[in-house]
């Protein structure tokens, strides 16, 4: 056997397990989920099911609770992401300006994003509770009482937004800081020699040069911002009522609490399509040009 053939064969052997995993664990399950969405399968009577055509999708179109959950989902994509980007950028710029005392503490800064999301939810719930919560204690020092975060729809939504911002700002900060550190120093020196003021350097040199990094980080945050299930589950459970549930959460409840697997599958397919529509243009515009190496 020639060396070229042997090389080719070993390369194939190295990629084969990945191909098998892709086929059996990603593609096949997705096809299966799509198939389930065209049936009337229920969790409490798995043995008896019929094809149902587009029934589940027709239901979806007129399901008010679904569209409400889509609205909430969009809030979780837009609001926390915007806050994370702004605060993360400010922190990255501050850290980059060389605060040595803080540099040592960097690992502490990034903790929120690596903690188990369930723990993130639990610790914010504990912090926001009226009786043993920390927020109420700190506010009581000023003679105030903490608002009942978890009782009203707006409060519960606010609690989730605060939590998600806290959880993911470190990610933005860390990546933008890495981006800042990789910018060439001489451009800044030149700008200063030309007499540019600090804010001018920031506006006309730093931010434009950092923009590609900012956009990639933004894409990552948008992609990940649908994965808020554990935080919703622990802090509000989707409530009060269904005031804080997003598409994922509603799909989970539909399938595993109301046993309506077929409708749940239809919802999940819709979520997937929605994410593809949001992410595909971003991916094409932002990430691919950077990867042509």
């Amino acid at each position: 056997m020639g060396r070229l053939t042997r090389d080719r064969l070993s390369q194939i052997a190295m990629v084969a397990p990945l191909g098998a995993a892709l086929l059996l664990l990603t593609i096949l399950p997705l096809v299966f989920a799509v198939a389930v969405s065209f049936t009337d399968l229920r969790l409490n009577r798995l043995a008896r099911w019929n094809w149902a055509g587009f029934d589940q999708y027709l239901r979806l179109a007129s399901d008010e609770r679904w569209w409400t959950s889509v609205g909430h989902g969009l809030v979780y994509i837009v609001v926390p992401t915007a806050l994370q980007m702004v605060i993360g950028l400010v922190l990255a710029l501050l850290l980059h300006a060389g605060i040595r005392a803080v540099g040592v503490l960097r690992p502490l800064f990034i903790l929120p994003m690596v903690l188990p999301p369930v723990v993130v939810g639990v610790l914010w719930k504990a912090f926001l509770l009226p009786d043993l919560g920390g927020l109420d204690y700190f506010m009581s020092l000023f003679g105030l009482r903490a608002p009942g975060f978890l009782e009203t729809a707006e409060g519960a939504m606010g609690a989730l937004i605060v939590t998600l911002t806290w959880e993911w700002t470190p990610f933005v900060m860390l990546l933008l800081l890495a981006g800042l550190e990789s910018l060439p120093q001489d451009v800044f020196d030149a700008a200063h020699i030309d007499g540019a003021k600090s804010w001018q350097v920031l506006r006309y040199v730093t931010l434009p040069m950092l923009m590609p990094t900012i956009l990639v980080v933004l894409l990552f945050r948008i992609i990940e911002s649908t994965k808020v299930f554990p935080v919703i589950f622990t802090i509000t459970g989707g409530g009060p009522g269904n005031a804080t549930e997003n598409m994922d959460f509603y799909a989970y409840l539909t399938g595993f609490r109301y046993f309506d697997l077929a409708y749940s599958a239809a919802l999940l397919v819709a979520i997937l399509l929605m994410m593809a529509v949001i992410c595909a243009p971003l991916y094409r515009a932002l990430v691919r040009p950077q990867l042509q190496t």
């Binding site: 997705l30 299966f32 299930f229 994922d248 799909a251 979520i271």
Partner: peptide, 8 residues
């Protein structure tokens, strides 16, 4: 979203 995989 990982939720998509839960049913299959």
């Amino acid at each position: 979203p990982p939720t998509v995989f839960i049913i299959p």
